[in-house]
Write a protein that binds this DNA or RNA. Structure first.
Lengths: 350, 350
DNA sequence: CGTTGATCAGGAAACGTTTACCGGCACGAT
DNA sequence: ATCGTGCCGGTAAACGTTTCCTGATCAACG
């Protein structure tokens, strides 16, 4: 049905030269006679030849593929990393492959083996677990790894992440400065270092500000929207807190939803500058994670680590920043000016 | 620095057998003596052998990689397709590579050539352009292609998309049933078939309902948020329309933003069930595109097309559905119950 | 006991490319 | 005129795997 694809030999025959010359013309390495070069290029066009990447990689001893491995496609870093790393990869004639580990160590392990077998030139990794993820298959195979967002115990590879401890401190300071004094916080699973650091920083900053805290101010969810809603409902029911910091984006949305229509709601400080936070009423103040900058830094770092494998691994921490909106302002009544009403259709004339 | 990776020959030597036997054990095809098989497996473990995918693909004459090609990572289909196709790919021991065309025909062309060279086993494609995208490099190389979301003129490949004409009609009917009579619509660039079909369906349904329309009811934006905001501002300034249908998600958010704080705003019917539409006040009725179902159908279809390349291409159209919220309800006053106020911090005791 | 058939392991070729090596040719210098 | 040098093109090997084909061993059957 489909004619067999032309190989370099077909091109060579058509141009009346050897395969070596064709290769030289294609890769532009050595100098080739003008006339021959012209004939070769013509033959490439006329045969529709496209170099076989498998043969090439086999001979060259390495692919030019960069792998991006993340727990899931919903991870906010994922698409950002993808577009950043693609930009860099395209310039370097590399391609990008991806894999999702679905937060499963076994899948992650298997995935590493595949990447080793495929001789990828580098890996951007958001690991599943801080202690149980085992990088050694990759590192022993000499594959450069850059960790993104999550740290791995004892790994000496590059790391690019946000300074979550600092993010938590900034959150606490922001709320304290605005006069709030009875904080609560919705954290993630205690093994997850990112959210845990945010919680720690938050608590530390409140204590430094002279506020006594008992352990009941920390509630832990599973990062999903529903869990944020449930925990916020609990906070509302207890009625103790006057401000709540939510440490991830999905739970932030849930928390906001649980507060709708409540007059006695505490101030809300959410995480991630997602679209909804500026569209809702009242608009929601957020701790903005520098995802774009992080992704870009990670992609760059991998690029230079591939070019230069034997340098010392480095750690880059990027700072979050607070975007202040209405939800943490004192005494604001956004409901009187922040919403609109669909015009009554009855007024319409046809 | 890094020890060379073991090859199948190292394993063979260690186990005292030939490379052929090792290959047979690994691939589990032919039957091998129990004892030898045991020795081979032991040797694989002790050497840390991982098969070289390049050698394998070269010999087998094909990789097991599925490519996903989309204009940009922000495309709502992108992450959905990724996770669906990955699920299928993993079961089939395939991996997934991606490429973004950045809405650039030249990049898309180059990308196709790469995929041909890499002998990918199939491509899921959201094409850049309905008429200018040229699939022939892929099809001539015998690579199965499934188009997602966007149609290509004259291509006889599989297509999975949403029925946009129907989506537009549903939008019009929804608004008409609720008593609105002076419609407007914010469309995309007229070459973009998806939004254009929605606009056409919308206009057709209004006309069928006996409403006279002139051409001024259609405004065209560039799909970005800012453009939606600008066009909605224009509609508000003219004050003619009593309801507005916005044909893509980004412009929908912009349109909503432009309506905030306006008492005389028309009803809003947006596109895509994004998170913000249910969190804002008033919540926004939407035409929900079945992205998940579409992605899943596309991934399945590619799977079976790879398994079975010579069947007739098919077209699958999935229906949208309307999710009714507050923004298209008559006479609703959501501002009185849809928003909340951060508690005044002054009330707090330390 | 001999022959046939089945089963299974090994040798070697093949996939398509790059590149080390070699040889030939042209040109310049002595 | 002859030799040396340098440039450039071709030949062939090599990358690591799979698989065809062959040969050997063994069992069963005539």
């Amino acid at each position: 049905m489909v004619s067999p694809r032309p190989t370099i030999l077909d091109v060579a025959r058509t141009a009346g030269v050897s395969s070596a010359t064709v290769s030289r013309v294609i890769n532009g390495a050595a100098s080739v006679d003008k006339e021959l070069s012209r004939r070769v290029r013509a033959a490439v066009r006329s045969t529709g030849y496209v170099p076989n990447a498998m043969g090439r990689s086999l001979r060259r001893g390495g692919t030019s593929q960069i792998a991006v491995v993340a727990p899931d496609a919903a991870n906010p870093y994922f698409t950002q990393i993808i577009s950043e790393v693609e930009r860099i990869a395209r310039g370097d004639h590399q391609s990008v492959t991806i894999a999702h580990t679905e937060d499963d160590l076994e899948i992650e392990r298997e995935c590493f083996a595949q990447l080793v077998g495929r001789h990828v030139s580098g890996v951007l990794l958001v690991p599943v677990h801080s202690t149980l993820t085992d990088l050694s298959p990759l590192t022993e195979a000499g594959i450069p790894v850059v960790l993104v967002d999550r740290w791995i115990e004892g790994a000496n590879t590059d790391l690019v992440a946000t300074d979550n401890l600092d993010a938590g401190r900034q959150a606490a300071r922001h709320l304290h400065e605005r006069g709030y004094r009875r904080p609560a916080v919705i954290g993630g699973p205690s093994q997850l270092r990112t959210t845990e650091d945010r919680v720690s920083g938050y608590l530390a900053a409140w204590r430094e500000a002279g506020i006594e805290l008992d352990e009941t101010v920390v509630l832990r969810g599973d990062l999903q929207l529903e869990s944020g809603a449930a925990l916020m409902a609990q906070i509302l029911a207890e009625g103790d807190a006057d401000c709540v910091y939510v440490t991830n984006n999905r739970m932030s949305a849930g928390a906001f939803e649980a507060m709708r229509g409540r007059d006695d709601a505490p101030a809300l400080l959410a995480t991630d500058d997602d679209l909804w936070t500026r569209l809702v009423t009242p608009s929601v103040s957020v701790v903005h994670q520098p995802v774009r900058a992080t992704s870009r830094a990670a992609a760059r770092m991998l690029g230079q680590r591939i070019a230069n494998p034997d340098e010392e691994p480095s750690t880059t921490l990027l700072r979050s920043k607070i975007i202040e909106r209405e939800s943490t302002q004192r005494g604001r009544r956004p409901r009187t000016d922040g919403s609109w009403t669909p015009r009554d259709a009855g007024h319409a004339s046809s």
